[in-house]
């Protein structure tokens, strides 16, 4: 842990700003990504995620703020930064007219490998990403999943220590998406750092060690998935009763003992926010002594969905005012 702390940050951004016309697409974003993690940049469409990535990946100049990749200034030394990153963009960043091998060989040559080394590396990557069958076909004939895999493979030719993935799984079927997740996890095991954007909460929850939630060009909240869930507020208690007739009296009892407003979510189902966990014991005892029989009891932490809606929704309301 101490060793981790002493290492330079993979990404360190302060107050990044990008303005397109009247639109402040990115409005003062700070990011700190330690080495060796998967960092999720989560947000709805148009939140400014891709713009942030494009600035960090030297594709776009910033209108304000500063950014460093492994301590190298992105805007002063872009050519150095480019030697440390791999970028897989939202749209296909490979050549559709060329075959998988041709694409990888050209990128390898551009990255300074000689023809033999570039060909060898292309073969290795095609094998790793299970694309050998498609090696000689033009990409136009590829499925979406194959193209994404090739796209990712093309970012790994010289095994860059930092990899940006802009919505890597958007539009993929669940199986292909899971394959890609596996690949991303393995990349981190080899020591790479990954920054990925996504609009899927599940993806961020599954993959990311830390998440920055972005909306309207600002970071709303940052932390581990668990911290984000905790910040969204309360855990919910769900009760399922054996008999429909008991539901109303059970609801009254819950409201009386927990001192909160309960909701009937079905004929036999009751949900209530759980602010004081200790009072649950009292509630269960009184339910039994009142002869109200339970079929099911469960406690649910808020999902990232709720965090997302709660926080991005609140932001929208403020702006509405």
């Amino acid at each position: 842990m101490n060793q981790e702390k002493s290492r330079v940050l993979a990404v360190e951004a302060h107050g990044l700003v990008k303005v397109f016309g009247d639109n402040r697409a990115v409005d003062g974003v700070d990011l700190s990504v330690p080495q060796g993690v998967i960092y999720g940049v989560l947000g709805p469409n148009g939140a400014g995620k891709s713009t942030v990535i494009n600035m960090l990946a030297t594709l776009l100049n910033a209108d304000g703020g500063s950014a460093k990749i492994f301590g190298h200034d992105v805007f002063a030394n872009p050519q150095v930064v480019r030697q440390l990153i791999g970028v897989t963009g939202q749209s296909a960043t490979v050549d559709e007219l060329l075959s998988a091998t041709e694409n990888l060989v050209i990128f390898g040559r551009l990255l300074g490998l000689n023809h033999a080394a570039a060909t060898k590396r292309a073969d290795e990557l095609l094998e790793e990403f299970d694309l050998q069958d498609a090696a000689r076909k033009p990409l136009g004939k590829f499925s979406g999943g194959m193209r994404r895999r090739l796209d990712l493979a093309a970012s790994l030719i010289v095994q860059p220590p930092l990899i940006f993935l802009d919505e890597p799984t958007t539009g993929l079927d669940p199986r292909t998406r899971n394959q890609l997740w596996e690949t991303i996890r393995r990349l981190v095991q080899t020591g790479s750092t990954i920054v990925l954007t996504t609009q899927y909460l599940e993806e961020a929850d599954q993959l990311a060690d830390r998440i920055a939630l972005i909306d309207h060009g600002r970071v709303i909240i940052e932390g581990t998935p668990d911290e984000l869930k905790a910040a969204a507020g309360v855990t919910t208690l769900h009760l399922g009763l054996k008999s429909e007739e008991d539901a109303d009296s059970a609801k009254e009892l819950v409201e009386k003992l927990l001192r909160v407003a309960a909701i009937k979510t079905g004929p036999t189902d009751i949900s209530a926010p759980m602010t004081d966990s200790d009072s649950i014991t009292d509630l269960l005892i009184s339910l039994r002594s009142s002869g109200l029989h339970l079929a099911e009891v469960s406690v649910q932490k808020p999902s990232l969905d709720e965090v997302f809606l709660a926080l991005t929704g609140a932001q929208n309301m403020e702006e509405g005012n």
């Binding site: 990946a57 594709l59 990128f107 093309a154």
Partner: peptide, 13 residues
């Protein structure tokens, strides 16, 4: 206009 040019821009070339 194709995405591959974005990759060219991100390469140290």
């Amino acid at each position: 206009d194709k995405g591959v040019f974005n990759r060219f821009k991100s390469l140290p070339i």
